[in-house]
């Protein structure tokens, strides 16, 4: 029983990490309708930047969150403006290949600049275990969970309450209608892609104390993030959040009760089953076959 509770607790913490990454992916997919295969590499870029800020300016990773969000917003906006936007009218294949190409280029650029070495960010205090009734969580994990909640709540308010948020929602629902209503769709897309990347910026600051950065670190997360997004119904932030929690818990439990090397098999199997039998996602928030 003790183990079960600890595993679930651990799964929730893991889930909050996936949530931040997946919410970004969902934003990009839900609004721009592009699956960003370079999403993990955005994370990698952010983590190297956090490392450099920590090394040269002595910034605590959590302090770097602010510049990271801004920097990745810019990266995302630029990618949308110069790579995705020219391809919006093109075949889906072409868009996918463009982001796959970007991903390959970024991984190898990191290898070129930083080499294959592993860099670890020093973050005093955040790895301290926190004991709650005999169960262990880290300070960093609590911060992660809180951030995930604040992020989803913040984005919710932004989407519901601000004119820009409403314009984004209108564009997501019907691009042509939004355009007729005077919404500048291209600009909305740039902002949406930027926002999605900015979520990863936040994630990079929060994840840096937990994992050392290497050129391929993004690939550790990106497939899981896709699973989460599909589970959550592709378009819904709330779906992505819940999906992330479920995958976190499944990851944790199957690693213990089935076999650690088969946990990916378990959630990929869930992923395939969801895609096939419930393409609207587990909570019916979206439409998978579109």
């Amino acid at each position: 029983m003790d183990v079960l509770v600890q595993l679930i607790l651990n799964g929730i913490m893991l889930g909050s990490m996936y949530a931040i990454i997946s919410v970004g992916l969902t934003l990009i997919f839900g609004i721009v309708r592009v699956v960003n295969f370079a999403h993990g590499e955005f994370l990698m870029v952010g983590m190297y930047a956090v490392y450099l800020l920590s090394l040269h300016l002595g910034l605590h990773p959590y302090v770097s969150a602010v510049p990271m969000v801004l920097m990745l917003f810019a990266v995302g906006a630029l990618v949308q403006r110069f790579i995705i936007q020219p391809l919006l009218g093109a075949d889906e294949h072409i868009q996918i290949f463009a982001t796959v190409g970007l991903s390959t280029a970024l991984i190898n650029l990191a290898l070129l600049v930083f080499g294959a070495d592993l860099y670890s960010v020093q973050a005093p205090g955040v790895r301290q275990p926190l004991s709650i009734g005999g169960y262990t969580v880290l300070h960093a994990q609590v911060v992660m969970l809180a951030s995930a909640l604040v992020l989803v709540a913040g984005l919710h308010l932004f989407m519901q309450r601000t004119p820009l948020g409403r314009a984004i929602r209108a564009t997501a629902q019907n691009r042509n209608a939004a355009q007729l209503m005077g919404v500048r769709v291209d600009r909305i897309y740039v902002i949406a892609f930027g926002l999605g990347a900015a979520c990863v910026g936040l994630a990079s600051a929060l994840i840096s104390p937990l994992f050392p950065v290497t050129p391929t670190i993004g690939t550790y997360f990106v497939l899981t993030a896709f699973v989460v997004v599909v589970l959550g119904g592709m378009r819904s932030m709330y779906g992505a959040f819940l999906g992330a929690m479920i995958i976190g818990i499944v990851d944790s439990l199957s690693g213990y009760y089935i076999a650690p090397d088969l946990k990916e098999v378990v959630y990929f199997a869930i992923f395939i089953l969801i895609l096939i039998f419930k393409p609207t996602g587990l909570f019916g928030f979206g439409r998978g076959t579109e």
Partner: peptide
């Protein structure tokens, strides 16, 4: 001469091809 250079070039070429020769 440099680890990752050819992978980088490969990735960039792919992006350019999607942009210029769809």
């Amino acid at each position: 001469s440099a680890n990752g250079l050819h992978g980088f070039v490969y990735g960039v070429v792919l992006v350019l091809i999607t942009l210029t020769l769809p």
